[in-house]
Amino acid sequence: MVCCFGELLLRFSPIANGEWIRQTAMPVYVGGAELNVATALAKWNVPVKYSTVLPENSLADDIIGYVSSKGIDPSGIVRFGQRVGSYFLPQGSDLKNAGVIYDRAHSAFSELAPGKVDWDAVLQQTSWLHVSAISPALTADVAAACTELVAAAAAKGITVSIDLNYRARLWQYGVSPVDIMPGIVEHCNVVMGNIWAANALLGIPVDADIHVKNQQPDYLNHALETSKAIQERFPRCTVVANTFRFDKVPTGLRYYTTLYTDGQQYVSPELLTDSVVDRVGSGDCFMAGLIYGLYNQHDPQQIVNFAAEAAFGKLQEFGDATNQTIDAITQRQQMITSLL
């Protein structure tokens, strides 16, 4: 079973320019990067449970019921603290955009600390643990608890994956990410991110002028060098994946990804769209596709193609988590392959 660990967040999604006030309405989504991954895996018939911290109140009870309704085992959820974290993101915006407003201070999850959770209980019947770089960004105690968790998982022989999602606005407790994240990644077998996140979080060198060239071969070569550097520095790591997402004027984007394993880099087709419905959760969907393929022991090219198509498809869905089926993703893959 896969266990996804991280903070559950409520996303309030107002219509921009005050329209949410005039309509007296604001959609609310239950999300969080790791829950998004768990939701996709459950949809794709991978046995999965979710671990987070929620308070003992009726709102949290409702949320746990929602998690269960998605086919996710909620047994990894720990109860203490006072509130559920949330954030506000205008519709159509990106989490990396300055428009995001976090309201997660003093959340139940932020009260995590070493020794506070029985990780042996959380990791029961678990063969794969998934975490992200968002959690260690919150506080020094949460970072230490994350390190404690991944070390416990690695000691049990559990496969550990991490998404190097970098949120600069969250790293506010007086340390640099490169002082924290290597101690977590050293326990990981699968690393997903991009060349810029690897630099910000792990100190892996990045070409600051690569955007000037803006050519796919240069980005792919850089992904290869970054992947090799990660594996050399972190010997447990056997798989590195990189994503590339570039905005197109005025509203579209282009997208492609890489997967490096056993000394070879595999590249997905380049995917293009002129419009995007919701950017939130696309990277989580790629991570889920990556875990799905590795968990089921698919071949590397099939894995990176599926994960990229899943992430790309998520861009056309409202909400934090995907509702795409395996068949829908596979059919789009086959259509694209036939055109190449």
Rank of each mutant, 00 (worst) to 15 (best):
L202K: 09
V304E: 06
I134H: 03
S127G: 15
I63D: 07
T251I: 05
E34S: 06
N97M: 03
A137D: 05
V122D: 02
D118H: 02
A208M: 14
K70F: 03
S282T: 10
G263F: 13
D61K: 03
P250A: 03
F246V: 13
A229D: 06
G6E: 00
K156A: 07
S75L: 10
I326Y: 00
G313T: 09
S93P: 05
S282A: 15
W128S: 06
V239D: 13
S161I: 02
S69R: 00
V267M: 01
A143C: 10
D218K: 02
L54K: 04
L129M: 08
D61Q: 05
D73H: 10
L149T: 09
H211M: 12
G183S: 11
D274E: 14
V240N: 11
E270I: 10
S338W: 06
S132W: 02
D320S: 07
W20Y: 13
G65W: 01
H187V: 04
S69A: 10
V276M: 02
K314T: 00
A208H: 10
T330A: 13
S275Q: 09
L41D: 08
T261M: 07
K314A: 10
V280S: 03
G252A: 02
E34A: 06
A321W: 12
L315Y: 13
D274Q: 12
G99E: 15
L271C: 11
K49R: 14
Q334N: 14
A144P: 01
G157R: 02
I180D: 12
G18C: 04
D262K: 09
P74S: 10
D299F: 14
L41M: 10
V67P: 07
N199Y: 15
T52N: 05
D103C: 12
L95N: 13
R245M: 04
A16L: 09
E186K: 15
A143F: 07
D207M: 05
K49P: 08
D61V: 09
T159C: 11
T257I: 07
C3N: 14
F88A: 13
Q91C: 07
N45I: 00
K70Q: 14
H106P: 00
S93Q: 15
Y255A: 13
V304Y: 09
Y260F: 15
G174N: 10
I64C: 09
P269T: 06
S275L: 01
F318V: 12
V191Q: 04
Q333V: 04
F5I: 01
A113Q: 14
N242E: 05
L112A: 02
G319D: 11
T139D: 01
G252F: 08
V178S: 12
A307F: 02
L259E: 00
D103A: 14
A200E: 15
F88Q: 11
A40G: 09
P114R: 02
Q302F: 09
F244C: 03
Y219F: 11
Q301V: 00
Q333E: 12
R83C: 00
I101Q: 13
S86C: 15
E19V: 15
N296C: 09
F80H: 08
E19Y: 09
N199G: 07
A308V: 13
A25M: 10
A241R: 01
